[in-house]
Amino acid sequence: MATADTPAGHEGHHEHVHYTSTGLENRKIAIWALIGSECMLFASLISTYLIYKGRSKVGPFPHEWSCKTSNVVGKTAELVAGCAPADVLKPILDIPVTSQSTFVLLMSSLAMVLALAAVENKGHPLPAGAGWWDRCLASSKFWLMATAVMGATFIGYQSYEFTSFVHEGLTIKTNLFGSSFFTLTGFHGAHVSVGVLWLLTLFAIDVKRGLKGKNDVLLVDICALYWHFVDVVWIAIFTLIYLIQ
């Protein structure tokens, strides 16, 4: 019953092991159930985006478009300055920039597994003749912070993207594309932000008392599972929303 709800920053780990039916940790089961549930959350968001794709009546649109392709020709020209019906406008989605942020998020997952591995291997002495890289690999603080920083960088990219869209005339109110795009990516961004806060909390605990032992491995493990899940959601979003037209 007890290790279940055991607190994050609590000093004395009661290491008396409680019996569980599967031998697994309660919190790990709960986080996987949560991840299963989140699949449905993002499926609803992505479905809505895809259903509404191409149904916006006014621009800007996600991919290459011209004022002619819009459903309500007259209105579009007023909405986007300098739009003549013959022009082919560049897509509003910025693939190069988003590729960079995708790269950062993927690498943050690598940093996250290394953070977990570092906490798992606490207490194992470094091999004889360990170089700077081995010492680096053994530092959970370094990898936790690296993951958090990369997550924050991703949020930075997203803020840049959102701001530039607003400058190009696309807000959450402009059209169906704007509503569904900002809501979908915003939900993902909110998940990343929660993850960054979680990572920073773990980092703070690590600084304060050092993360080690079975209970702390679990603490990092559930955060890592959440983080990787947010990453795989982005893998899906990047392909479905950005690359496929």
Partner: peptide
């Protein structure tokens, strides 16, 4: 509350 158009039929919503 925020003026999105998810259910705004005039904007093409379903």
């Amino acid at each position: 509350f925020f003026g999105t158009q998810f259910y705004e039929i005039a904007a093409g919503a379903d």
